[in-house]
Design a protein around this nucleic acid. Structure first.
Length: 423
RNA sequence: GGAGAAUUGGCAGAGUGGUCGAAUGCGGCGGUCUUGAAAACCGUUGAGGGUCACACCUCCGGGGGUUCGAAUCCCUCAUUCUCCGCCA
Protein backbone atom coordinates (compact mmCIF):
# COMPACT_ATOMS: atom_id res chain seq x y z
CA UNK A 1 0.00 0.00 0.00
CA UNK A 2 1.32 3.42 -0.94
CA UNK A 3 1.32 6.19 1.62
CA UNK A 4 -1.17 8.98 1.22
CA UNK A 5 1.43 11.56 2.25
CA UNK A 6 3.76 10.34 -0.46
CA UNK A 7 0.94 10.72 -2.99
CA UNK A 8 0.11 14.21 -1.77
CA UNK A 9 3.67 15.37 -2.12
CA UNK A 10 4.72 13.49 -5.25
CA UNK A 11 1.56 13.24 -7.27
CA UNK A 12 3.10 13.93 -10.68
CA UNK A 13 6.00 11.57 -10.12
CA UNK A 14 3.71 8.80 -8.91
CA UNK A 15 1.46 9.06 -11.95
CA UNK A 16 4.41 9.11 -14.32
CA UNK A 17 6.09 6.09 -12.81
CA UNK A 18 2.93 4.04 -12.43
CA UNK A 19 2.43 4.50 -16.16
CA UNK A 20 5.40 2.15 -16.60
CA UNK A 21 3.17 -0.50 -15.05
CA UNK A 22 0.54 0.48 -17.59
CA UNK A 23 -1.51 1.85 -14.76
CA UNK A 24 -3.33 5.15 -15.07
CA UNK A 25 -3.39 6.45 -11.51
CA UNK A 26 -4.31 10.06 -12.00
CA UNK A 27 -7.99 9.70 -11.24
CA UNK A 28 -7.51 7.53 -8.17
CA UNK A 29 -4.83 9.79 -6.76
CA UNK A 30 -6.97 12.88 -7.25
CA UNK A 31 -9.89 11.22 -5.52
CA UNK A 32 -7.65 9.98 -2.73
CA UNK A 33 -6.19 13.40 -2.03
CA UNK A 34 -9.63 14.93 -2.02
CA UNK A 35 -10.88 12.27 0.38
CA UNK A 36 -7.85 12.76 2.56
CA UNK A 37 -8.65 16.46 2.82
CA UNK A 38 -12.15 15.58 3.86
CA UNK A 39 -10.74 13.09 6.33
CA UNK A 40 -8.59 15.73 7.99
CA UNK A 41 -11.44 18.18 8.13
CA UNK A 42 -13.82 15.62 9.62
CA UNK A 43 -11.19 14.43 12.08
CA UNK A 44 -10.79 18.01 13.28
CA UNK A 45 -14.51 18.46 13.77
CA UNK A 46 -14.68 15.22 15.69
CA UNK A 47 -11.70 16.10 17.85
CA UNK A 48 -13.24 19.43 18.75
CA UNK A 49 -16.54 17.83 19.65
CA UNK A 50 -14.83 15.24 21.80
CA UNK A 51 -12.71 17.87 23.51
CA UNK A 52 -15.83 19.81 24.39
CA UNK A 53 -17.53 16.68 25.69
CA UNK A 54 -14.47 15.78 27.76
CA UNK A 55 -14.46 19.20 29.35
CA UNK A 56 -18.16 19.00 30.11
CA UNK A 57 -17.77 15.58 31.72
CA UNK A 58 -15.01 16.93 33.91
CA UNK A 59 -17.24 19.80 34.97
CA UNK A 60 -20.09 17.46 35.75
CA UNK A 61 -17.75 15.47 37.94
CA UNK A 62 -16.86 18.67 39.77
CA UNK A 63 -20.52 19.59 40.28
CA UNK A 64 -21.33 16.18 41.70
CA UNK A 65 -18.45 16.43 44.13
CA UNK A 66 -19.82 19.71 45.42
CA UNK A 67 -23.34 18.38 45.56
CA UNK A 68 -24.54 20.69 42.81
CA UNK A 69 -26.95 18.20 41.31
CA UNK A 70 -29.06 20.63 39.32
CA UNK A 71 -26.08 22.17 37.59
CA UNK A 72 -24.79 18.72 36.78
CA UNK A 73 -28.05 17.56 35.29
CA UNK A 74 -28.29 20.68 33.20
CA UNK A 75 -24.85 20.08 31.76
CA UNK A 76 -25.80 16.51 30.96
CA UNK A 77 -28.22 17.81 28.37
CA UNK A 78 -25.31 19.43 26.61
CA UNK A 79 -23.19 16.31 26.64
CA UNK A 80 -26.05 14.30 25.22
CA UNK A 81 -26.11 16.65 22.28
CA UNK A 82 -22.34 16.47 21.85
CA UNK A 83 -22.53 12.73 22.06
CA UNK A 84 -25.03 12.55 19.22
CA UNK A 85 -22.82 14.85 17.21
CA UNK A 86 -19.67 12.84 17.79
CA UNK A 87 -21.44 9.61 17.00
CA UNK A 88 -22.44 11.04 13.66
CA UNK A 89 -18.96 12.36 12.97
CA UNK A 90 -17.35 9.08 13.96
CA UNK A 91 -19.55 7.24 11.54
CA UNK A 92 -18.78 9.71 8.80
CA UNK A 93 -15.08 9.51 9.49
CA UNK A 94 -15.12 5.73 9.49
CA UNK A 95 -16.74 5.71 6.10
CA UNK A 96 -14.22 8.20 4.72
CA UNK A 97 -11.27 6.24 6.08
CA UNK A 98 -12.47 2.97 4.64
CA UNK A 99 -13.28 4.57 1.27
CA UNK A 100 -9.86 6.13 1.23
CA UNK A 101 -8.19 2.83 1.98
CA UNK A 102 -10.20 1.13 -0.70
CA UNK A 103 -8.94 3.69 -3.19
CA UNK A 104 -5.29 3.55 -2.19
CA UNK A 105 -5.22 -0.20 -2.00
CA UNK A 106 -5.98 -0.29 -5.72
CA UNK A 107 -2.69 1.41 -6.48
CA UNK A 108 0.21 -0.92 -7.26
CA UNK A 109 3.68 -0.24 -5.99
CA UNK A 110 5.71 2.41 -7.79
CA UNK A 111 8.23 0.70 -10.08
CA UNK A 112 11.92 1.44 -9.66
CA UNK A 113 13.37 3.80 -12.32
CA UNK A 114 15.32 0.91 -13.85
CA UNK A 115 12.15 -1.02 -14.70
CA UNK A 116 11.68 -1.13 -18.48
CA UNK A 117 8.23 -0.42 -19.83
CA UNK A 118 6.43 -3.25 -21.56
CA UNK A 119 3.27 -5.26 -21.60
CA UNK A 120 4.15 -8.89 -21.06
CA UNK A 121 6.94 -11.35 -20.37
CA UNK A 122 8.08 -10.83 -23.95
CA UNK A 123 9.28 -7.38 -22.91
CA UNK A 124 11.38 -8.52 -19.97
CA UNK A 125 15.02 -7.62 -20.22
CA UNK A 126 17.54 -10.45 -20.13
CA UNK A 127 20.43 -9.07 -18.17
CA UNK A 128 22.54 -12.20 -18.00
CA UNK A 129 22.69 -15.67 -19.47
CA UNK A 130 25.19 -18.20 -18.27
CA UNK A 131 25.99 -21.90 -18.44
CA UNK A 132 26.20 -24.28 -21.36
CA UNK A 133 22.94 -25.53 -22.84
CA UNK A 134 23.35 -29.27 -23.25
CA UNK A 135 22.86 -30.99 -26.60
CA UNK A 136 20.80 -34.04 -25.76
CA UNK A 137 19.82 -35.40 -29.14
CA UNK A 138 16.49 -36.82 -30.14
CA UNK A 139 16.33 -39.62 -27.61
CA UNK A 140 16.22 -37.25 -24.66
CA UNK A 141 13.28 -37.79 -22.36
CA UNK A 142 11.26 -35.11 -20.59
CA UNK A 143 11.50 -35.29 -16.81
CA UNK A 144 8.08 -36.89 -16.30
CA UNK A 145 9.20 -39.87 -18.37
CA UNK A 146 12.54 -40.02 -16.59
CA UNK A 147 10.66 -39.89 -13.30
CA UNK A 148 8.73 -43.03 -14.07
CA UNK A 149 11.63 -44.75 -15.84
CA UNK A 150 13.69 -44.57 -12.65
CA UNK A 151 10.68 -44.74 -10.34
CA UNK A 152 11.57 -41.61 -8.41
CA UNK A 153 8.41 -39.52 -8.78
CA UNK A 154 4.90 -40.93 -9.17
CA UNK A 155 2.33 -38.51 -10.53
CA UNK A 156 -0.43 -41.09 -11.02
CA UNK A 157 -0.20 -42.18 -7.43
CA UNK A 158 -0.60 -38.57 -6.40
CA UNK A 159 -3.73 -38.28 -8.52
CA UNK A 160 -5.14 -41.40 -6.92
CA UNK A 161 -4.49 -40.40 -3.35
CA UNK A 162 -5.04 -36.64 -3.58
CA UNK A 163 -5.42 -35.15 -7.04
CA UNK A 164 -3.42 -33.86 -9.98
CA UNK A 165 -0.46 -31.73 -8.97
CA UNK A 166 0.33 -33.64 -5.78
CA UNK A 167 3.09 -36.07 -6.72
CA UNK A 168 4.76 -38.70 -4.57
CA UNK A 169 8.57 -38.63 -4.42
CA UNK A 170 10.01 -42.08 -3.98
CA UNK A 171 13.41 -43.55 -3.10
CA UNK A 172 16.19 -41.51 -4.65
CA UNK A 173 13.57 -38.99 -5.75
CA UNK A 174 12.65 -38.34 -2.13
CA UNK A 175 16.30 -38.26 -1.12
CA UNK A 176 17.03 -35.77 -3.87
CA UNK A 177 14.34 -33.47 -2.49
CA UNK A 178 15.81 -33.68 0.98
CA UNK A 179 19.30 -33.09 -0.41
CA UNK A 180 18.26 -29.95 -2.26
CA UNK A 181 16.44 -28.54 0.75
CA UNK A 182 19.45 -29.07 2.99
CA UNK A 183 21.83 -27.72 0.39
CA UNK A 184 19.79 -24.53 0.02
CA UNK A 185 19.35 -24.08 3.75
CA UNK A 186 23.04 -24.62 4.48
CA UNK A 187 24.02 -22.11 1.86
CA UNK A 188 21.60 -19.55 3.28
CA UNK A 189 22.95 -20.03 6.77
CA UNK A 190 26.50 -19.57 5.47
CA UNK A 191 25.24 -16.28 4.07
CA UNK A 192 24.06 -15.22 7.51
CA UNK A 193 20.38 -16.06 7.40
CA UNK A 194 18.54 -17.45 10.42
CA UNK A 195 16.63 -20.60 9.70
CA UNK A 196 12.95 -20.59 10.63
CA UNK A 197 10.34 -23.30 10.38
CA UNK A 198 7.04 -21.49 10.01
CA UNK A 199 3.47 -22.71 10.38
CA UNK A 200 2.06 -23.91 7.08
CA UNK A 201 -1.32 -22.34 7.77
CA UNK A 202 -1.98 -18.71 8.55
CA UNK A 203 -4.93 -16.68 9.75
CA UNK A 204 -6.82 -14.01 7.88
CA UNK A 205 -4.81 -11.09 9.26
CA UNK A 206 -1.61 -12.58 7.91
CA UNK A 207 -3.23 -13.11 4.53
CA UNK A 208 -3.99 -9.40 4.42
CA UNK A 209 -0.58 -8.47 5.76
CA UNK A 210 1.31 -9.80 2.75
CA UNK A 211 -1.45 -9.01 0.27
CA UNK A 212 -2.81 -12.45 -0.64
CA UNK A 213 -6.14 -11.28 0.70
CA UNK A 214 -8.51 -10.02 -0.37
CA UNK A 215 -7.59 -10.16 -4.07
CA UNK A 216 -5.95 -13.54 -4.46
CA UNK A 217 -8.18 -15.45 -2.11
CA UNK A 218 -8.94 -18.01 -4.81
CA UNK A 219 -5.26 -18.92 -5.08
CA UNK A 220 -5.06 -20.25 -1.55
CA UNK A 221 -6.46 -23.40 -0.01
CA UNK A 222 -8.82 -22.41 2.75
CA UNK A 223 -9.59 -24.55 5.78
CA UNK A 224 -13.08 -23.30 6.42
CA UNK A 225 -13.81 -24.90 9.75
CA UNK A 226 -10.99 -22.95 11.42
CA UNK A 227 -10.76 -20.12 8.91
CA UNK A 228 -7.11 -20.74 8.14
CA UNK A 229 -5.25 -20.55 4.85
CA UNK A 230 -2.56 -22.92 3.57
CA UNK A 231 0.47 -20.80 2.78
CA UNK A 232 1.31 -20.27 -0.91
CA UNK A 233 4.87 -19.36 0.12
CA UNK A 234 6.86 -19.10 3.34
CA UNK A 235 7.00 -15.38 2.68
CA UNK A 236 3.55 -15.11 4.25
CA UNK A 237 4.31 -16.42 7.76
CA UNK A 238 7.90 -15.15 7.78
CA UNK A 239 7.06 -11.57 6.83
CA UNK A 240 4.02 -11.47 9.08
CA UNK A 241 6.25 -12.13 12.08
CA UNK A 242 6.98 -8.44 11.81
CA UNK A 243 3.41 -7.21 11.41
CA UNK A 244 2.87 -4.29 13.81
CA UNK A 245 6.47 -4.42 14.91
CA UNK A 246 8.90 -1.56 15.46
CA UNK A 247 12.49 -2.74 15.16
CA UNK A 248 15.58 -0.97 16.39
CA UNK A 249 17.85 0.30 13.65
CA UNK A 250 20.60 -1.92 15.02
CA UNK A 251 18.46 -4.99 14.36
CA UNK A 252 18.54 -4.31 10.62
CA UNK A 253 18.98 -6.10 8.39
CA UNK A 254 16.77 -8.95 9.51
CA UNK A 255 17.74 -12.02 7.47
CA UNK A 256 15.52 -15.06 7.65
CA UNK A 257 15.39 -18.22 5.60
CA UNK A 258 12.60 -20.74 5.67
CA UNK A 259 12.01 -24.04 4.01
CA UNK A 260 8.35 -24.80 3.61
CA UNK A 261 5.94 -26.66 1.51
CA UNK A 262 3.79 -24.30 -0.52
CA UNK A 263 0.20 -24.79 -1.54
CA UNK A 264 -1.38 -23.15 -4.56
CA UNK A 265 -4.71 -23.83 -6.15
CA UNK A 266 -3.50 -22.59 -9.54
CA UNK A 267 -7.04 -22.28 -10.78
CA UNK A 268 -7.16 -21.79 -14.52
CA UNK A 269 -3.80 -23.35 -15.40
CA UNK A 270 -3.71 -26.01 -18.06
CA UNK A 271 -1.78 -27.76 -20.84
CA UNK A 272 1.95 -28.19 -21.15
CA UNK A 273 2.55 -25.55 -18.50
CA UNK A 274 1.34 -27.92 -15.84
CA UNK A 275 2.89 -31.11 -17.17
CA UNK A 276 5.00 -33.08 -14.70
CA UNK A 277 6.78 -30.85 -12.23
CA UNK A 278 6.22 -27.66 -14.16
CA UNK A 279 3.35 -26.50 -11.98
CA UNK A 280 2.15 -28.22 -8.81
CA UNK A 281 -0.44 -27.62 -6.12
CA UNK A 282 2.03 -28.59 -3.43
CA UNK A 283 5.73 -27.98 -3.77
CA UNK A 284 8.85 -27.33 -1.73
CA UNK A 285 10.65 -24.05 -1.58
CA UNK A 286 13.38 -22.36 0.39
CA UNK A 287 12.69 -18.67 0.73
CA UNK A 288 15.01 -15.90 1.84
CA UNK A 289 13.51 -12.77 3.38
CA UNK A 290 15.22 -9.58 4.44
CA UNK A 291 14.03 -6.48 6.23
CA UNK A 292 16.38 -3.66 5.49
CA UNK A 293 17.00 0.05 6.02
CA UNK A 294 15.51 2.05 3.11
CA UNK A 295 18.94 3.39 2.16
CA UNK A 296 20.37 -0.09 1.72
CA UNK A 297 17.59 -2.14 0.22
CA UNK A 298 18.79 -2.01 -3.37
CA UNK A 299 22.28 -2.96 -2.36
CA UNK A 300 20.69 -5.90 -0.54
CA UNK A 301 18.67 -6.86 -3.60
CA UNK A 302 21.96 -7.23 -5.50
CA UNK A 303 23.40 -9.42 -2.76
CA UNK A 304 20.33 -11.63 -2.77
CA UNK A 305 20.47 -11.89 -6.53
CA UNK A 306 24.09 -13.02 -6.39
CA UNK A 307 23.25 -15.56 -3.72
CA UNK A 308 20.57 -17.12 -5.89
CA UNK A 309 22.80 -17.10 -8.95
CA UNK A 310 25.55 -18.93 -7.06
CA UNK A 311 23.12 -21.70 -6.08
CA UNK A 312 22.16 -22.31 -9.68
CA UNK A 313 25.79 -22.20 -10.78
CA UNK A 314 26.71 -24.81 -8.19
CA UNK A 315 23.94 -27.02 -9.54
CA UNK A 316 25.58 -26.58 -12.96
CA UNK A 317 22.37 -25.49 -14.62
CA UNK A 318 22.23 -23.05 -17.54
CA UNK A 319 20.23 -20.04 -16.46
CA UNK A 320 19.32 -16.50 -17.28
CA UNK A 321 18.28 -13.51 -15.21
CA UNK A 322 15.46 -11.27 -16.33
CA UNK A 323 14.63 -7.80 -15.21
CA UNK A 324 10.85 -7.76 -15.26
CA UNK A 325 9.18 -5.07 -17.31
CA UNK A 326 6.43 -2.88 -15.93
CA UNK A 327 3.66 -5.03 -17.34
CA UNK A 328 5.02 -8.24 -15.84
CA UNK A 329 5.97 -6.80 -12.48
CA UNK A 330 3.76 -7.91 -9.62
CA UNK A 331 1.36 -5.54 -7.94
CA UNK A 332 3.45 -5.21 -4.80
CA UNK A 333 6.96 -5.15 -6.27
CA UNK A 334 9.13 -2.16 -7.15
CA UNK A 335 11.82 -4.21 -8.85
CA UNK A 336 11.94 -7.93 -9.57
CA UNK A 337 14.50 -10.24 -11.11
CA UNK A 338 13.36 -13.62 -12.32
CA UNK A 339 15.70 -16.58 -12.64
CA UNK A 340 15.00 -19.18 -15.27
CA UNK A 341 16.84 -22.44 -15.83
CA UNK A 342 16.92 -24.21 -19.15
CA UNK A 343 15.23 -27.58 -19.17
CA UNK A 344 16.88 -29.22 -22.13
CA UNK A 345 14.43 -31.97 -23.05
CA UNK A 346 11.39 -29.75 -22.89
CA UNK A 347 13.52 -27.09 -24.54
CA UNK A 348 12.04 -24.39 -22.34
CA UNK A 349 13.11 -21.89 -19.76
CA UNK A 350 11.53 -22.56 -16.38
CA UNK A 351 11.18 -19.91 -13.70
CA UNK A 352 12.84 -21.13 -10.51
CA UNK A 353 13.21 -17.94 -8.54
CA UNK A 354 11.94 -14.43 -8.28
CA UNK A 355 13.67 -11.89 -6.09
CA UNK A 356 12.01 -8.58 -5.32
CA UNK A 357 12.32 -5.36 -3.45
CA UNK A 358 8.93 -4.22 -2.17
CA UNK A 359 10.40 -1.07 -0.64
CA UNK A 360 7.87 0.07 1.97
CA UNK A 361 4.78 -1.20 0.17
CA UNK A 362 4.33 -4.27 2.38
CA UNK A 363 5.71 -2.44 5.40
CA UNK A 364 3.09 0.26 5.13
CA UNK A 365 0.36 -2.29 4.84
CA UNK A 366 1.44 -4.30 7.85
CA UNK A 367 2.92 -1.46 9.91
CA UNK A 368 6.46 -2.80 9.92
CA UNK A 369 8.71 -0.01 11.10
CA UNK A 370 12.03 0.73 12.71
CA UNK A 371 13.32 3.46 14.94
CA UNK A 372 16.23 5.28 13.34
CA UNK A 373 19.27 6.80 15.04
CA UNK A 374 17.38 10.01 15.79
CA UNK A 375 14.56 8.11 17.44
CA UNK A 376 12.24 8.69 14.51
CA UNK A 377 9.91 5.86 13.54
CA UNK A 378 10.21 5.00 9.85
CA UNK A 379 9.01 2.30 7.54
CA UNK A 380 11.44 -0.47 6.70
CA UNK A 381 11.93 -2.06 3.31
CA UNK A 382 11.13 -5.72 2.70
CA UNK A 383 12.72 -8.04 0.18
CA UNK A 384 12.37 -11.68 -0.60
CA UNK A 385 13.42 -14.30 -3.06
CA UNK A 386 13.17 -17.99 -3.71
CA UNK A 387 16.43 -19.76 -3.05
CA UNK A 388 15.15 -21.94 -4.56
CA UNK A 389 11.88 -23.55 -5.60
CA UNK A 390 12.50 -27.27 -5.98
CA UNK A 391 10.27 -28.82 -8.62
CA UNK A 392 11.56 -27.01 -11.67
CA UNK A 393 15.13 -27.36 -10.47
CA UNK A 394 14.50 -31.09 -10.25
CA UNK A 395 12.95 -31.06 -13.72
CA UNK A 396 16.01 -29.37 -15.20
CA UNK A 397 18.44 -31.57 -13.28
CA UNK A 398 16.76 -34.73 -14.49
CA UNK A 399 16.50 -33.64 -18.09
CA UNK A 400 19.89 -31.95 -18.48
CA UNK A 401 21.87 -34.63 -16.70
CA UNK A 402 20.40 -37.72 -18.30
CA UNK A 403 22.96 -40.13 -19.66
CA UNK A 404 22.88 -43.69 -20.88
CA UNK A 405 23.99 -44.83 -17.41
CA UNK A 406 21.43 -42.78 -15.52
CA UNK A 407 21.00 -39.28 -14.17
CA UNK A 408 24.15 -37.60 -12.98
CA UNK A 409 23.95 -35.67 -9.70
CA UNK A 410 25.93 -32.39 -9.69
CA UNK A 411 29.05 -32.53 -7.56
CA UNK A 412 27.91 -29.93 -5.04
CA UNK A 413 24.89 -32.03 -4.24
CA UNK A 414 26.57 -35.42 -3.85
CA UNK A 415 27.50 -34.88 -0.18
CA UNK A 416 23.80 -34.35 0.42
CA UNK A 417 22.38 -37.17 -1.69
CA UNK A 418 25.00 -39.74 -0.86
CA UNK A 419 24.83 -41.00 -4.45
CA UNK A 420 26.20 -39.74 -7.76
CA UNK A 421 23.78 -41.37 -10.10
CA UNK A 422 20.08 -42.13 -10.31
CA UNK A 423 19.76 -45.39 -12.22
C1' G B 1 -13.30 -31.19 24.37
C1' G B 2 -14.79 -29.65 29.97
C1' A B 3 -13.80 -26.30 34.44
C1' G B 4 -11.28 -22.07 36.47
C1' A B 5 -7.78 -17.70 36.36
C1' A B 6 -5.53 -14.04 33.59
C1' U B 7 -4.26 -10.30 29.35
C1' U B 8 -1.81 -2.79 31.41
C1' G B 9 4.12 0.96 28.23
C1' G B 10 10.80 -2.83 25.98
C1' C B 11 10.23 -6.13 30.60
C1' A B 12 8.24 -6.70 35.63
C1' G B 13 4.12 -4.75 38.05
C1' A B 14 0.37 -1.00 40.64
C1' G B 15 -4.16 0.89 39.35
C1' U B 16 -11.91 -1.67 40.41
C1' G B 17 -16.02 4.67 37.75
C1' G B 18 -13.79 11.20 37.45
C1' U B 19 -7.45 15.74 35.87
C1' C B 20 -4.81 8.02 34.38
C1' G B 21 -1.52 7.75 28.67
C1' A B 22 -1.25 5.41 33.39
C1' A B 23 2.53 4.81 40.09
C1' U B 24 6.98 2.12 41.06
C1' G B 25 11.21 -0.94 39.74
C1' C B 26 14.37 -2.76 35.82
C1' G B 27 16.10 -1.78 31.01
C1' G B 28 17.19 2.18 27.05
C1' C B 29 18.94 7.21 25.94
C1' G B 30 21.33 11.99 27.57
C1' G B 31 24.13 14.44 31.41
C1' U B 32 27.17 15.25 36.16
C1' C B 33 31.34 12.85 38.45
C1' U B 34 35.91 9.82 36.34
C1' U B 35 42.17 9.27 32.68
C1' G B 36 38.34 5.57 31.07
C1' A B 37 34.62 2.41 33.04
C1' A B 38 31.51 0.92 37.18
C1' A B 39 28.70 2.90 41.21
C1' A B 40 25.93 7.15 42.67
C1' C B 41 23.00 11.32 41.37
C1' C B 42 19.96 14.39 37.79
C1' G B 43 17.03 14.42 33.44
C1' U B 44 14.58 11.77 29.64
C1' U B 45 12.11 7.43 27.54
C1' G B 46 5.00 4.08 23.99
C1' A B 47 2.12 4.55 19.27
C1' G B 48 -1.19 7.00 15.73
C1' G B 49 -3.89 11.44 13.93
C1' G B 50 -3.40 16.78 13.82
C1' U B 51 -0.33 21.57 13.82
C1' C B 52 4.90 25.79 11.09
C1' A B 53 5.07 24.72 16.24
C1' C B 54 1.61 24.27 20.21
C1' A B 55 -3.30 23.10 21.48
C1' C B 56 -6.33 19.13 20.87
C1' C B 57 -8.05 13.92 19.75
C1' U B 58 -7.51 8.35 19.83
C1' C B 59 -5.24 3.83 21.81
C1' C B 60 -4.50 -0.11 28.77
C1' G B 61 -5.46 -8.05 24.05
C1' G B 62 -9.54 -7.28 19.46
C1' G B 63 -14.71 -5.82 18.70
C1' G B 64 -19.34 -4.06 20.82
C1' G B 65 -22.27 -2.00 25.02
C1' U B 66 -23.66 0.71 29.90
C1' U B 67 -22.52 5.81 31.84
C1' C B 68 -22.30 12.90 31.73
C1' G B 69 -17.51 10.19 32.39
C1' A B 70 -14.44 3.40 31.51
C1' A B 71 -7.79 0.62 32.14
C1' U B 72 -11.71 0.01 35.97
C1' C B 73 -18.76 -2.35 34.98
C1' C B 74 -21.39 -5.71 31.09
C1' C B 75 -21.33 -8.83 26.41
C1' U B 76 -18.40 -11.26 22.80
C1' C B 77 -14.01 -13.08 20.33
C1' A B 78 -8.80 -14.23 20.61
C1' U B 79 -4.59 -15.57 23.36
C1' U B 80 -1.93 -17.37 27.81
C1' C B 81 -1.75 -20.20 32.40
C1' U B 82 -3.73 -24.16 35.91
C1' C B 83 -6.66 -28.72 36.54
C1' C B 84 -9.34 -32.83 33.95
C1' G B 85 -9.94 -35.69 29.29
C1' C B 86 -7.53 -37.21 24.69
C1' C B 87 -3.02 -37.73 22.14
C1' A B 88 2.22 -37.69 18.12
Amino acid sequence: MLQINYLRENKAEAIERLAVKNFDASKIIDQAIELDNLRRQTQNQLDETLAEANNASREIGGFFKQGMINEANELKLKTAELKAQSRELTEKLGKIVSDLKELIIQLPNIPHPSVPSGNSDADNETILQEGKIPELGDKALPHWELASKYNIIDFDLGSKVTGAGFPFYIGKGAKLQRALINFFLDRAMEAGYTEIQPPLMVNEDSGYGTGQLPDKEGQMYHVGIDNLYMIPTAEVPITNIYRNVILKEGELPVKNVAYSQCFRREAGSYGKDVRGLNRLHQFDKVEIVQIQHPDKSYETLEVMRNHIASLIQDLELPYRILRLCGGDLSFTSALTFDFEVYSAAQKRWLEVSSVSNFENFQANRMKLRFKDKNGKTRQAHTLNGSALALPRIVAALLENNQTLEGIRIPEALVPYTGFELIN
